[in-house]
Design a protein around this nucleic acid. Structure first.
Lengths: 291, 291
DNA sequence: AACAATTACGGAATCCGTAAAAATT
DNA sequence: AATTTTTACGGATTCCGTAATTGTT
């Protein structure tokens, strides 16, 4: 016999220390909590509290029970979320990423797909992205590392290769390839949400300044009127510099030759979902830019 | 919102396949289950069933939900058992073992202990004995291997050394030490529940026959009237051959010299329980037979 | 006097079983 | 005809809040 609201009360009591605070935190009255904890003790056949007329405290067993109650509640919330996310992904295939480039390519090839795909607007920063697959937050994660576990598989998609967009009259612009070192001392206009690229450019370019912009609109507005160097890649699709040859707006797009400017891209998914995600992966592979 | 009895119904439906069988398995009526599953769907905001007038089946989401429900129920049972076991071990310290010898020694030194100790009557055969510590089934496990994890620690106690009890007139009896090989072709009277020793004697003694006895009483009865060779060890306490020198009942106790006849013994416990189990471990160490 | 826990009582919500209906095999 | 699911209705349990009680600080 296990009643959920009793677990809530016990876990809340462990946080607050008194039945009164517990009651107010849960928006019930004190007698409710009193009865609840009495019932929990009789249900489990275990003494959880030391009672004095004016004070009630957890026994060691009660402390363990409170820990376990909190864990059970957490597990319940996760299970419900998992089911709800799974249901959502039955209709739309949610895609997340730790780097933005592949998402831009995906957005570009999306009309060719029969599957209804929804692209996450924020990048993943979690330490263990695989949990976002197992809890069905995403059905597909585009990552710079192969994520492989008993239930998660990864497909190699290709490489993202960083380029720099420069004013054509800058002296560095007069070459077909460039290195991070040659970009030293410059100020760059950069989107904030670029995942691992951020650490790479900060470490690789000596004495650089980075003007981070949170919003893409602001980024493009500034980019239109001021002439800061900015980054794009072979996967970029919605900036005007992508189309080759470079347009006549005064900028050139130069690939960066450093090894660090090349990042592998993998598609990670639950093995159980392989059939569902396959068309998306195949389309990405088909439209992946030839190096 | 998560009602436990709905999880039971969902998990049962996943096993039975119809609401009618589910109801009879749970000892409720069909309408109860119908309402329950409808409520579960509205509570979670997810469609779990495909409904036809005369048949109802789980959607893919429903199948996942049933799996998760079963896992949650399992976790709940384990949590309650853990708390109840913990409470029990607050008053009596339960001790388990994978080899019987140390338990016999413990039973012998038990009167010297202030702690109220309860000794398990059956040996542990689980693959992962540490789970029996984390779920508080036992507070102390006597094992032939050190069990060490983030929460479990082990203390080395000493060695158990196997001996053989022989009729004094057998030709092998006339020596102070013996090998497994010298015991070949004999028939032995052996207790069934001797853990790893069973495999050892079976593999080490060539062409031997083992008469396994489940019950200790029967074992001692047979042993009294028939004169089969039998095993004991330096930790044996309740057989008459233990006291040195050997009694005048016609048998001698000869230690076996093979390396395989010597087994290290460790005491494993939750690090959180160190203070509780320490007096027991100290007493075992103090009374451990000198080799 | 103020605070915390418990007990007593009445109302309200919910959960169940019986009975009946609808639809399929 | 026999199953299976669903709906309708009435009863019973249980769960909660208000009010009052006990005991401590």
């Amino acid at each position: 016999m296990l009643d959920n609201y009793l677990l809530e009360e016990l876990a809340a009591f462990a946080r607050t220390g008194t039945l009164a605070k517990t009651a107010s935190q849960l928006n019930v009255t004190q007698p409710t909590v009193t009865r609840g904890m009495q019932k929990l003790e009789t249900d489990w056949g275990v003494r959880l509290f030391d009672r004095q007329p004016n004070r009630i405290t957890l026994t060691p067993t009660g402390q363990l029970a409170a820990q376990e109650a909190a864990k059970l509640l957490q597990a319940q919330h996760e299970a419900i979320a998992k089911v709800q996310n799974y249901d959502r992904n039955q209709r739309v295939l949610n895609v997340g990423a730790i780097i933005p480039g592949p998402l831009m390519l995906l957005a570009h090839v999306l009309p060719t797909l029969a599957t209804h795909v929804k692209i996450s607007q924020t990048l993943i920063t979690a330490d263990e992205p695989t949990t976002l697959l197992t809890d069905n937050t995403y059905s597909l994660i585009l990552s710079s590392q192969p994520l492989t576990t008993a239930t998660v598989a990864s497909s190699y998609l290709g490489e993202e290769r960083l380029s720099i967009n420069l004013n054509r009259f800058m002296y560095q612009a007069n070459q077909s390839s460039i290195t991070f070192a040659e970009l030293k001392d410059l100020s760059f206009l950069v989107l904030s949400d670029i995942g691992p690229w951020r650490a790479i450019i900060q470490q690789a370019i000596p004495n650089a300044k980075f003007l981070y912009q949170d919003q893409r609109e602001a980024f493009e507005e500034i980019s239109k009127y001021a002439d800061f160097p900015s980054f794009s890649s072979n996967l970029s699709r919605d900036d005007p510099l992508f189309t080759q040859p470079a347009p006549e707006d005064g900028r050139v797009r130069i690939p960066i030759s450093d090894a660090r400017a090349h990042m592998p891209v993998y598609a990670a998914y639950l093995r159980a979902n392989k059939a569902t995600v396959k068309p998306v992966i195949d389309q990405l592979l088909a439209d992946w830019p030839v190096s």
